[in-house]
């Protein structure tokens, strides 16, 4: 096992102890040449992180939140503000753990939320509009950047995953509704259509038909005798916040699990097959 001291002896110029004048590079012990390559490595990692999570997170959202995020006429007050943040907190929470635990970078959640929104709009343009001709109004997506920023800010202040789960996990779920309502409010204007009330969102979904998605497939609020009037969305927001507390912690742990550096023992035959000279086990 090489100790840190060994490396310091090799690589770190002796310098006066103390925080004054110290930089991350100087304390890391990287020489200028090594730092240059380390920066190149940074670029490569960022170049991997962006497309990897644009792909994996978007796929995850498409197949868990799916239609609620896709269509404006699925964005109801009961399920959309509940299902969407619960699913959309997963990757940001795991990324937060990966970036924070290993590198003390408080950006993981924001990275996840940002690449998701960008890649979602890219799909809306390249596929929804260019290929099938759906107007952009029909596919306005949700955004979780507001909640993700709050999660990262909570982490930098609290520096603790448990408190981040409790406070920022809740905040992530809770602010989903208000932070998206600002963008979507115009779509809930009422219109009269065939003698019945409809929201503009209903009308958009109706006017530009999705042949394979009949109206009844929408899993949206049906209302009950116990519905709390207009406050129903805030009830959904609070419930989403509650679930997001646990979801955040669960996925934080998954992010930590994914960061492990375990090497399983490889068989001697495979090793020698791959080019490793057999030698006595150390």
């Amino acid at each position: 096992m090489t100790s840190i001291t060994d490396i310091d002896a090799v690589a770190i110029p002796k310098r006066k102890a103390g925080p004054k004048g110290e930089t991350v590079i100087s304390v890391s012990g990287l020489t200028p040449g090594a730092a240059r390559y380390s920066r190149m490595f940074d670029f490569l990692v960022v170049a991997a992180v962006v497309p990897l999570f644009a792909g994996a997170f978007h796929l995850h959202v498409m197949l868990t939140v799916g239609d609620w995020d896709m269509y404006v006429d699925w964005k109801d007050r009961q399920y959309w503000p509940l299902v969407t943040p619960i699913s959309m907190i997963m990757f940001p929470a795991a990324l937060q753990a990966i970036f924070w635990v290993n590198f003390r970078l408080p950006i993981g959640a924001t990275v996840g939320a940002t690449v998701l929104l960008i890649t979602t709009w890219l799909g809306r343009y390249a596929n929804w509009w260019i290929w099938t001709g759906f107007p952009f109004t029909e596919g306005v997506p949700s955004q979780v950047i507001a909640g993700a920023l709050l999660m990262d800010m909570a982490l930098i202040v609290l520096r603790n995953s448990l408190f981040t789960s409790i406070f920022a996990g809740f905040a992530f779920g809770f602010v989903f509704w208000p932070s998206n309502y600002s963008a979507l409010a115009p779509f809930y204007l009422p219109v009269e259509h065939q003698g019945m009330v409809a929201s503009l969102a209903d009308m958009i979904g109706y006017t530009f038909p999705r042949s394979n998605m009949p109206e009844y497939l929408r899993i949206i609020e049906r209302g009950t005798l116990r519905t709390f009037g207009s406050s129903v969305s805030w009830v959904s927001a609070a419930f989403a916040g509650f679930i997001c507390i646990f979801m955040h912690q669960l996925w934080w742990q998954l992010g930590r699990f994914a960061s492990q550096t375990t090497f399983l023992k490889n068989g001697d035959v495979v090793k020698s097959f791959m080019g490793m000279k057999s030698r006595p086990a150390s």
Partner: peptide, 14 residues
């Protein structure tokens, strides 16, 4: 993974 999981999967959805 981006082109598969996001771009073309989204196209499949639409």
């Amino acid at each position: 993974i981006f082109w598969t999981g996001s771009f073309f999967a989204d196209g499949d959805g639409v």
